[in-house]
Each structure stands twice: as structure tokens, then as C-alpha cells.
């Protein structure tokens, strides 16, 4: 694979819930090392797209290629194995399990000897998780749960990290923290990031490139900076 070949390539993806189609042929790509943001309003199809990429949402047409392999019909666990990890909307941590078990389960498919070392790295990144590692994860605050969900996803050593609304329901100071962590992960862990956000300003600020999705279709694309300064984007999503 050449370095400018896309890591993730989605072509004409269609998906829906029952007879209601939520994605009407979405095409986009994420290249290695990039941070790409997908912004759009409520119900535009952002979460559906991420679910389809992770293989927990049936796809009716189109394809998902990852690292040059067709994953359109692959199981969710095969995609994790291939290197796709998702931090789902609303964290979705394993509340009754301990924080450490949550992280350990992030490495569920790994068989290598470096799991313990990676656990320490996550603890370095999020010291609060280490302090409380024996406690049930459900006792963490919203922001801490978001850290845990990110740490859990990183434990699979993903090539591509999918983040669904990481800022949702967090206080502004925590939103800044979460985005700082995403930027740090890209620097230190060399992970490619595909980020879905309603908080368009924060997402586009850290993104190399962005896509705007409207009612299940890609409406606009460009660099993060271009989209941030685009009149229509500013009006529709940035509220200025």
C-alpha cells in the first residue's frame, strides 16, 4: 500500500433502519495519519455511518475498504482484528466491570505480550483511571467515562480510531480536554482518526480534512480550515 492510498475508503454506502434509508450512497476516504472530521446535524446519518464502518449496522449497497481489503461483509470482530476501533456515542462502557477490565477487554483479540505495557500507557495518558482501576466503571463521571472509552479503544492498537460524538454531554472544559487528547493520540500513537461531531467548530479545528453530511449524503468536503471559513458551514453548523 502506498502511503497516499486511503486507509479507509467508503463508496456509495447505503444503509438504513427497516425500510427507512439513513445513508443514500455515501462516499469518502481517510488517508493514513489524517484526522478527518464528519460534521452534520442531528439525524444526518453520522452515527449510522460509523456503525456501518464497524460492522454493527447492515449495509444494503456500496462498500467499505480498509487497508486495501474489502470489509463490507466482514463481522464486527474481524474489523477490530483488522485495526478499526470505535469509541461509540454515549461511551458505552461496561458499567459493572472494573475500569481495568474495561481496558483489558479493549485488547480482547490481541494475543501479544505487550498488553500490560499498553495498559500502563493508557494509565499514563489518563492517571485518574489508574487511581480507580479496581472500581466499577459505572462510578466514573461523564468525562472520565469518555477517557475510559477512548483508552479501551486504544487498547486494541487500532490503525483507525472512530470517534462518535466524543464531546457529547461534556462540560466545555472537558470538551477541550477530549480534543487535546485526540490531537495527542495522533502525535504520539500515530493513529489515524475519523471523528463524527455535532460540535463542528471543535472537530474542524483539529481536523486535516472534513466532510459535511446532510440527510444521508455528503454535502461538502474540504480541508478543516476551508470548511471552518465556508459561509454555508458557518451559517448552518457554527451558528455565526
Amino acid at each position: 500500500m502506498r502511503s497516499d492510498d486511503p486507509l479507509l475508503k467508503i463508496e456509495g454506502l447505503r444503509s438504513g433502519y427497516g425500510r427507512i434509508e439513513a445513508l443514500h450512497g455515501v462516499s469518502l476516504e481517510v488517508r493514513p495519519g489524517e484526522v478527518v472530521a464528519l460534521v452534520g446535524g442531528n439525524g444526518a446519518g453520522k452515527t449510522t455511518l460509523l456503525r456501518a464502518i464497524s460492522g454493527v449496522q447492515p449495509v444494503t449497497a456500496g462498500g467499505v475498504r480498509f487497508s486495501g481489503t474489502d470489509l463490507t461483509r466482514a463481522s464486527a470482530h474481524a474489523r477490530v482484528k483488522a485495526g478499526i476501533a470505535q469509541v461509540p456515542e454515549g461511551r458505552q462502557i461496561f458499567s459493572p466491570l472494573s475500569i481495568e477490565d474495561n481496558l483489558r477487554l479493549g485488547a480482547y483479540l490481541r494475543k501479544d505480550a505487550e498488553i500490560a505495557a499498553d495498559l500502563e500507557r493508557v494509565y499514563d495518558l489518563f492517571p485518574v483511571l489508574k487511581e480507580r482501576r479496581r472500581n466499577p466503571a459505572g462510578g466514573l463521571s461523564g468525562g472520565q467515562q469518555q477517557m475510559l472509552a477512548i483508552g479501551r479503544a486504544m487498547m486494541s492498537r487500532p490503525k483507525l480510531l472512530l470517534l462518535d460524538e466524543p464531546s457529547m454531554g461534556l462540560a466545555p472544559v472537558l470538551v477541550d480536554q477530549v480534543f487535546a487528547i485526540i490531537a495527542r493520540l495522533r502525535e504520539e500513537e500515530a493513529v489515524t482518526v475519523f471523528l463524527v461531531e455535532q460540535n463542528a467548530f471543535a472537530a474542524l479545528s483539529i481536523a486535516d480534512r472534513g466532510y459535511v453530511i446532510e440527510t444521508g449524503e455528503i454535502a461538502m468536503t474540504g480541508s478543516g480550515r476551508e470548511l471552518l471559513t465556508d459561509e454555508r458551514v458557518r451559517e448552518a453548523y457554527l451558528g455565526v
Binding site: 464497524s54 463481522s75 458505552q92 462502557i93 461496561f94 459493572p96 477487554l105 480482547y108
Partner: peptide
């Protein structure tokens, strides 16, 4: 055991279990 914890994880949150690669 990891398999035992995977069962508990599936019980706690099926979607998240699938997203970490649990069958």
C-alpha cells in the same frame, strides 16, 4: 478469565462488546 469477562461484558453492553471484537 478473559472469556468470562467477555461474557460479563456482553451482558453489560452488547454493542460495546461487539465493538471491542467480542463475538
Amino acid at each position: 478469565t478473559l472469556l468470562g469477562k467477555a461474557v460479563l461484558a456482553t451482558a453489560a453492553n452488547r454493542l460495546a462488546a461487539r465493538l471491542v471484537g467480542i463475538n
